[in-house]
Structures are given as structure tokens and as C-alpha cells.
């Protein structure tokens, strides 16, 4: 088994990496909102699910691809991918802002505490999942293939596939854009200020509502990007996909230390690789068990996650 593992090490690693980067983007959606509001946005998983459908609709209905279409190449391919990515990010971003307005804002203004918004977010999440389930008749939906999944080259006998490469590179770019946005811009500074001390930030003249909306928008946009990459890699989706991926990404955020951008990054990567290796070694049926054993071990030794700081010092 060990020998076999080394034979397959790099191809497992490449697969795990691209899955990990999808987790990172969803985990960022959870972590950003947590950093600002100290609340878990349980609707984030469904924002991802809606994003996957947005991509499918763009590819299938806007660009009219079918399962027997020729693959797009050259400029047309990049144009299609670009349009699909931008539309998906916009749809998820806007949905995320709407979720904040519906599930959080009014409750927050009335100081309803932590539990009421939690349950209203779960409610919104159920409404979204069930609506899509009814619209799709509970059936899985596949995205026609627009891009040929060709191998770019080999690395120790493991093929490097185009879609995995795009996901890793694009997700890294998005991550660094976010990183410099939070650390270098005025709005980023305001988000950090609200995250550290909302009352003081308000006294300094920061419009909290605006900052919260902006945070949900950014979180939704990144989660939407994850939806696009997911469809690019797996080419199928369904109404229950949000729950499955959402739980995984939430776990990644917790492992890394929720509320911390760096934590989401390493938590996502760790989870993607861990899931893939565990499935190979122990069998796919042990994947979830392994992940949660690791989660418990991490929390046992570092209760706030790998990169987590104590709540009062948490930085977005």
C-alpha cells in the first residue's frame, strides 16, 4: 500500500490541491463574515450551490453547449470561462448581500443576540436549497463540457491537468487580491477596524451597515468563484451540493482558526489533501471519519484552530 501510495502520490496531491483551493474560497466566505459579525453564516453553503447553478446555466443556456458539442479553444474558451466566472461571482455576491439584508440586518439592529440570526440564516439556507430542489425535481444537473481536460505535462509520472492548474492559479490570485485588499485599502482597514472593535469603529465614524454589506459581498463573491471552479472540475451539481461542500469548508475554516484569513487558506489546503490521502489509504468510506478525528485532535491541542487567536484579538 505504501509503495502504491508513492506511485500515486503526485496525482493524488494535484487532485487534493485543487479540491483544497475550492475549500479555501468557500471557507473565506465563512471566515470573513465571522470576523466581522462573530456569527456563522450558515447560508454560505447555499450561496455556493446557487453559484454552481449559475455557471451551469451560463455554459449550457447562454453559450448553448451540449454534451456532444465541440470543445471551445483559444480566445473563445477564455472568453467563455471569464464570462462564466464573472457572472457566477456577481450572482453569489449579490445573493450574499440579500441574505444579509433578510436574515441578519433587522435582527442585528434590534440587538437580538447571537442565536436568532443563526436560526434565520439556517432558515434562508433551507429555503434556497429546497427551492432549487423543487426547480430541478431533485435531479442531478450536469454542465456540458466547454473546455477539454487536457494534460499540460507530467510531474513524476503524474499528469498535470488544465482544469486543476486553472483552479490553483486563479484561486491563488483571488486570495492575494483579497489579502492586499484587506491590508492595503481604506475599506479593508475599516473592515479590520469593525472586526476588532465594532463600538470603537462606529465612534470613529465607520458606517457599520456598509461594512457588513461589503463583507457579505466579498465573502459571496469568493464563494461564487468556488462554485465556478467546482463546476469546472466536476461538471455536475445538485440541490444538496451546498450542504456537502459547505460542511467540509466550514470544517476547514475551523481547523485553520475561524475569523482568520490565513487560517482559511491553510485549513482548506490541509482538508483537501487530508481527504484525498485518507480516501486512498483507508478507503473512501473513512474519509469523513478521518477528517473529524483530525478536527478533534487540532481543537484539543489548539482550541481556536491552527492560526486562531483569542476572540478579542481576532483579525480578519
Amino acid at each position: 500500500m505504501i509503495g502504491n501510495f508513492f506511485d500515486q502520490f503526485w496525482s493524488l496531491t494535484f487532485g487534493g490541491l485543487s479540491l483544497g483551493f475550492i475549500y479555501i474560497l468557500i471557507a473565506l466566505g465563512y471566515t470573513l463574515v465571522y470576523g466581522v459579525l462573530r456569527m456563522i453564516n450558515f447560508a454560505n453553503s447555499e450561496i455556493f450551490m446557487v453559484g454552481t447553478f449559475a455557471t451551469v446555466i451560463v455554459v449550457r443556456d447562454l453559450f448553448k453547449f451540449t454534451q456532444s458539442s465541440e470543445y471551445a479553444t483559444g480566445f473563445r474558451l477564455w472568453f467563455i470561462l471569464g464570462v462564466a466566472l464573472i457572472i457566477t461571482m456577481s450572482v453569489s455576491g449579490l445573493l450574499s448581500v440579500v441574505v444579509e439584508l433578510v436574515a441578519y440586518r433587522r435582527l442585528r439592529r434590534r440587538n437580538s443576540g447571537v442565536l436568532a440570526p443563526l436560526i434565520s440564516a439556517i432558515g434562508v439556507s433551507m429555503v434556497l436549497a429546497e427551492s432549487v430542489r423543487i426547480m430541478t425535481d431533485s435531479r442531478p444537473v450536469a454542465s456540458p463540457r466547454a473546455m477539454e481536460k487536457k494534460f499540460l505535462g507530467e510531474f513524476f509520472d503524474a499528469g498535470i491537468r488544465l482544469d486543476n492548474t486553472i483552479i490553483v492559479v486563479a484561486a491563488l490570485v483571488l486570495f492575494f487580491i483579497l489579502w492586499s485588499f484587506i491590508n492595503r485599502t481604506r475599506l479593508g482597514k475599516a473592515i479590520r477596524a469593525v472586526s476588532m472593535n465594532p463600538s470603537a469603529a462606529k465612534l470613529m465614524g465607520i458606517d457599520i451597515d456598509k461594512i457588513v454589506s461589503a463583507t457579505f459581498l466579498i465573502g459571496g463573491v469568493l464563494t461564487g468563484a468556488a462554485g465556478f471552479f467546482y463546476v469546472l472540475k466536476y461538471e455536475n451539481t445538485g440541490s444538496s451540493i451546498g450542504f456537502e461542500l459547505g460542511i467540509a469548508a466550514f470544517t476547514a475554516a475551523i481547523i485553520g482558526g475561524i475569523g482568520n484569513i490565513k487560517g482559511a487558506f491553510f485549513g482548506g489546503l490541509a482538508l483537501g489533501l487530508l481527504e484525498t490521502y485518507a480516501s486512498f489509504f483507508l478507503g473512501t468510506q473513512w474519509k469523513a471519519v478521518t477528517v473529524f478525528i483530525v478536527l478533534v485532535l487540532v481543537l484539543y491541542t489548539k482550541p481556536s484552530g491552527l492560526f486562531g487567536e483569542s476572540i478579542t484579538r481576532t483579525r480578519v
Binding site: L12, Y277, S279, T284
Partner: peptide, 20 residues
């Protein structure tokens, strides 16, 4: 042989086994 939950979306581990 492999036994994989019907909730699986990523098959890379099973595929690695098929290849080995």
C-alpha cells in the same frame, strides 16, 4: 474492490486505486 458512498463527488482516491 472499492466501496464508495453515493454522496461522493471527488473520485480521485478511487481512481488512484484503479490505476495502481
Amino acid at each position: 474492490f472499492d466501496s464508495v458512498s453515493d454522496k461522493t463527488t471527488d473520485w480521485s482516491a478511487t481512481i488512484a486505486k484503479v490505476k495502481t
